[in-house]
Amino acid sequence: MTELLQQTVSGLTTGLVYAALALAIALVFQGTGTLNFAQGEFATLAAFVSFALSTAGLSWWLIVPLLVVLAFVFGAGVERLLVRPVEGSGPLALLTVTAALLLGSNAVVALIWGTDVRSMASPFGGAVYHVGPLTFTAQAIGGGALVLLAMLLCGLIFRFTPLGLRLRAVADNPDSARLLGISTGVMLAVGWGIAAAVGAVAGLVAAPTLGLSPELMTNALLLALAAVTLGGFSSRLGAVVGGLLIGVLSNLASRYVPGIGGDLQLVVPFAVIFLVLLVRPQGLFGRASTVRA
C-alpha cells in the first residue's frame, strides 16, 4: 500500500513536468492550430541555457526569472520569424515547420553542448525528507512547486488579465478578434512566448532528475502529447490534468505491469493516444466542436 502511494506520488511529481509541457503544447495549439513537435526541444534548450548560466556562477534566484524571460522572447521570435511565413499555408506546412524546428534545435543543442549525458545539480539541493512512510527529495518538492507556480501564473494570466482575455479571444475566433481591434499576429507570438516560458520551467525541473542531454525531453514530448490528447487540445486545464494522469499511469505501469520498465514506459502514452483518438477524440475536457478539422 505504501509502495503504491509512493509510486503515485512520484508519478505526480514527474507528471508535473509532462503537465507543463502539455500546457505549452495546448497553448500553441489553441492559438496557431498546430502541434509544436519542437516544444520538448525548446525545453531542452532552456535546460542547457540554465545549466550554462549556473556554471557561470549566477544564482538560481536570478536564473529562473531570466530563463522565463529569455524563453518568452525566444518563443515569440520563433513564431514571428519562422512560423508566421507559413501561417496561411495550411496545417501540413505548419506541422512540417515544427518538425524542422525539432530537428534543428536538437542539432544545435548537440553541437554546442555535445551528446554526452551530464549530471546537473539540483537547484534545490540534495536533501531527502520523510513524511510518514513516504520519501520526498528536495528536488521533487522544489521542482514540483516551481512547475506548479509557473502553470498557476500562466492560468491566472489567461483567466484574469486583459492580455489573457485577448489571447483567449484570438484562440476562440481570430476573425472576430481582428474586427475588435486585436492584433492577432501579436497575440500568436505572445502565445508561443508563454508556451516556451512554461516549457522552459519544465526543462529546468526535469534536467537534474533525468540528466542533461540533447535527448532530455524527447520522451517527455511523447508523454506530453499523450497528456494533451487525453485532456483535450482545447482545454488548458485538461492538458495539466492529462499530464498528471500520464505521469501516474506510466509510473504505475512500469512498476506493476511486467515487461513495461525503463524506456518502455513510452508504450503507455502511445496506448493512451491510440485509445483516446479511437474512443473519445476530443479528450476528457475538450469540446467536440473545437477540434480542428
Partner: peptide, 27 residues
C-alpha cells in the same frame, strides 16, 4: 490592418455574429 481600422472607430458586426463562444457574455 483590420485591427487598426477597428480602433479608428469603425465597428463591424459580422455575419453569423462572430461571438466568442467559449468566453462568458461579459467577457
Amino acid at each position: 490592418s483590420a485591427a487598426r481600422i477597428a480602433r479608428s472607430g469603425l465597428g463591424h458586426v459580422p455575419q453569423g455574429r462572430g461571438t466568442f463562444t467559449a468566453l462568458t457574455v461579459e467577457e
